[in-house]
């Protein structure tokens, strides 16, 4: 299961030494987004955002607005009313759900990123016996359909007496095959063997190499992995619903309670709850956005 990567043959590897000025301007032309690129991205983003903006609009109106045709495109006056209705819903325990979700998602994310970079690095750059077989197992782990795993996992939680506790939604997810595999694929191309060698020659232990050489180089991928993990954990519903009850909800469990009625769906409460639940994710995004976009431009300018 190892992937080899050959460098494209026709390309000159050495950057031309002459014409530094020309390189600079060529570089600028290469890397500046053209108006066409902007246009394409704007279309993409409008498509991406519309359903969400629209759900915010619904959140600011009344239930019957949901099925209006043409759909309402301007916000109504009710957002704060609806928001306070959500927060005041004692069954949904929304604020507690938010806090629990923050704890759970943070723990899972930190752990997944740490263990994934550690193992991903080992699989990509260290030599050890049984490596390919172990990597194969990791990839296999991702192929296990989630639906039926729920039953054995629930029985396990009962045995551990972890039902209705946050451990139940944290501990089983501290590692993810996805993360190891992703980091491994990234490290494969992003970290040179020479770099590891150089650290070795300098007398660094493997751990030290990981901590001060590899980890910094893995930063973009680690940030992406962290973000994706955080969002996935934040949005997970089925398992938290099964193993937690309304006294210890995650935010998605709270949202589910908001959505219920006696044979009806309170759309406005759902959308308002969703809107409120997105806010922490936006905060994460803003806080770590730089990690994700980091690197490339600095690198190209430096060269």
């Amino acid at each position: 299961m190892s992937t080899t990567m050959t460098r494209p043959r026709n390309l000159p590897v050495e950057p031309p030494k002459k014409n530094r000025g020309r390189v600079r301007s060529a570089s600028a032309a290469l890397w500046d987004a053209s108006p066409l690129t902007y246009l394409a991205l704007i279309i993409t983003i409008v498509l991406s955002i519309f359903p969400i903006v629209w759900s915010f609009i619904v959140a600011s109106r009344e239930n019957s607005a949901v099925t209006d045709i043409p759909p309402p495109l301007t916000p109504g006056p009710n957002f704060f009313d609806n928001a306070s209705r959500v927060l005041a819903n004692t069954d949904a325990n929304f604020v507690y759900g938010l806090i629990n979700s923050a704890v759970v998602s943070s723990c899972v994310t930190l752990s997944v990123v740490f263990f994934s970079t550690l193992a991903g690095f080992a699989f990509a750059k260290l030599k050890f016996r049984g490596k390919n077989a172990l990597l194969l197992i990791i990839i296999l782990t991702m192929m296990i359909p989630t639906q039926v795993n729920i039953i054995p996992l629930y029985l396990l939680m009962v045995k551990f007496d972890w039902t209705n506790t946050l451990q139940a939604v944290i501990v089983p997810f501290l590692v993810k095959g996805f993360g190891v595999f992703m980091i491994r694929q990234y490290a494969e191309s992003a970290i040179s063997d020479e770099l590891i060698e150089a650290a070795r020659v300098d007398g660094a232990s493997t751990w030290r190499t990981y901590w001060s050489v590899v980890l910094p180089a893995l930063r973009p991928a680690a940030a992406v992995l962290g973000l994706l993990t955080f969002m996935e954990t934040w949005n997970d519903f089925l398992w938290p619903y099964v193993v937690l009850n309304g006294d210890t909800p995650t935010v998605q469990v709270s949202l589910n309670i908001l959505a219920t009625g006696y044979y009806k769906t309170d759309y406005v409460q759902v959308f308002t709850g969703t809107a409120l639940a997105i806010v922490p994710l936006l905060l994460v995004f803003i806080a770590f956005g730089r990690q994700i976009i980091g690197g490339i431009m600095e690198g190209s300018v430096k060269a």
Partner: peptide
């Protein structure tokens, strides 16, 4: 305990 929706 409000368990949310019937189908769940």
């Amino acid at each position: 305990k409000n368990e949310g929706q019937t189908k769940d």
